[in-house]
Design a protein around this nucleic acid. Structure first.
Length: 441
DNA sequence: TCTGGGGTCCTAGGACCC
DNA sequence: TCTGGGGTCCTAGGACCC
């Protein structure tokens, strides 16, 4: 056994990396509350696409024992009993609010990695002294985000990303921290006490499966994990686990990724609002997904070498006959042209579609992505055709940027969109659509 | 009736080669 | 009953994240 007290380096050196993790509390719910204060103090959930599952819960809802991802239709009793307000998700609003939070933080500390829609890592070892130290800096970030966007955030600080995550967890669950916790500033005794109190499953990178296996090995708390034999853990669980434990011991293995790497695959898929039976309607949905995915593809200046298309029946209905179909359709030449991708996807769909099933979901994935600017010339290259295609796509994207995705799209994606998802209680897109701006009386 | 969507990384095992 | 050793590449599947 290695004792953590012997191996954890201290933050005495000014050049030692120091990470802050800033995350918005109950992000989607908090966004809704900014524009509708009546939702304060009320139990609120935000539902996934198709109004399926609870993907964000206010503290009041968490206190009722509602789990992340719980199917909404199973919560109807709780809804009646406690007056839970359920909102459809409004990603346009959340995406815009997320950008605002990032721009406030970037102002205060430029070394920032936007990790997800509601979380960012910041390197602070060179900037903290400007704000009077790490914890004061955390409070300044917290207060300014609150004041300028209306959103509540917590800040966790540590010598590694995993420790910053750990500190953030402490800040969120313990009010005495006032939303900012720096584990790098703690004494070893104090840090170990927190590690003894917190379950190993809370560690970033330790999910349900791994934590079950760890508990069988009598590793239950974060402290148990950090004190365990790292070679043995590596043999049992692989290199990812080794990295996690090193990070918890204060050895930084995960760097700040301040420039987002381009995606290696781009997916678009949705459940249908109701079951679909015909290839015509499903084809419209597939074409729509190609439209959405290709837009993202061009935004990151990539081209795809192939497209994967898939259709699925409802896996939750045991009584229904089940069928999952999917196939990869290679493209003759790499492309970012919505029309070429649509042709390929619909070709694939015709191959995988089977009559007589009730389909619930379809989607496409663009794969074998390459940087457009370093693309290979091929034998049958037609530079003129390629230039034409580029101009059409440029115009398509320009129109949709101004007027909204789907304003201009392929005819294949249909007019009526009968496959569209349910979204019965979506709030207005307060910050991005003129007609939906909030009105102050 | 009603059960999300979009990603990444790692590992094991098979195919194939010399 | 015997049936090398070492390497690469690819894919499927499992685990994780939000």
């Amino acid at each position: 056994m290695t004792n953590v007290a012997d191996t954890t380096p201290r933050a005495t050196n000014v050049h030692q990396p120091l990470f802050a993790l800033v995350d918005v509390n109950n992000f989607y719910v908090s966004c809704e509350r900014v524009f509708n204060p009546r939702l304060e103090q009320v139990p609120v959930v935000v539902l996934s696409n198709n109004d399926g599952c609870a993907v964000a819960r206010s503290n009041e809802v968490k206190a009722l024992g509602v789990k992340m991802g719980a199917p909404w239709f199973k919560l109807k009793d709780l809804e009646k009993k406690h007056g839970i307000v359920a909102l459809s998700s409004n990603y346009t609003l959340y995406g815009d609010m997320s950008n605002r939070v990032v721009s406030v933080m970037r102002d205060l500390a430029p070394d920032i990695e936007v990790y997800s829609i509601d979380e960012s890592f910041i390197r602070i070892e060179r900037t903290a002294h400007l704000y009077g130290g790490t914890v004061p800096m955390g409070h300044i970030i917290r207060n300014r985000v609150r004041q300028w966007t209306g959103l509540p955030v917590c800040v966790g600080i540590g010598e590694t990303k995993t420790l910053a995550k750990f500190a953030n967890h402490i800040a969120k669950k313990n009010n005495e921290f006032n939303g900012v916790c720096d584990v790098a500033a703690m004494s070893l005794d104090e840090r170990n006490q927190w590690m003894r109190r917190i379950d190993v499953g809370e560690v970033w990178g330790i999910g349900r499966r791994i934590s079950e296996r760890l508990i069988k090995l009598k590793i239950q708390s974060v402290h148990d994990l950090v004190s365990a034999d790292i070679k043995r853990l590596r043999a049992h669980f692989g290199v990812v686990m080794e990295r996690t434990v090193s990070e918890l011991r204060g050895v930084s293995c995960l760097a700040l990724e301040d420039v987002a790497p381009s995606k290696q695959q781009i997916m678009s898929s949705r459940s249908f609002g109701t079951m679909m039976h015909t290839i015509e309607l499903i084809g419209e949905a597939v074409a729509w997904h190609v439209h959405a995915a290709a837009e993202k593809l061009r935004a990151q200046h990539s081209v795809a070498g192939a497209i994967y298309v898939f259709i699925q029946t409802n896996r939750f209905r045991d009584s229904d006959p089940q069928y999952n179909g999917g196939m990869v359709v290679p493209l003759a030449d790499v492309s970012d042209d919505t029309r070429a991708l649509t042709t390929a996807a619909l070709h694939g769909l015709r191959r995988i579609f089977r009559d007589g099933y009730a389909y619930k979901k379809c989607g496409v994935m663009l794969i074998e992505l390459q940087d457009k600017r370093i693309r290979q010339e091929t034998l049958f290259d037609d530079p003129q055709a390629r230039a034409r295609s580029a101009r059409v796509m440029l115009a398509l994207d320009a129109v949709n940027r101004v007027w909204g995705r789907g304003t201009l799209r392929t005819a294949a994606s249909g007019i009526t969109q009968r496959w569209a998802m349910r979204s019965e209680n979506r709030s207005p897109r307060y910050t991005t659509h003129w007609r939906e701006l909030p009105v102050v009386r």
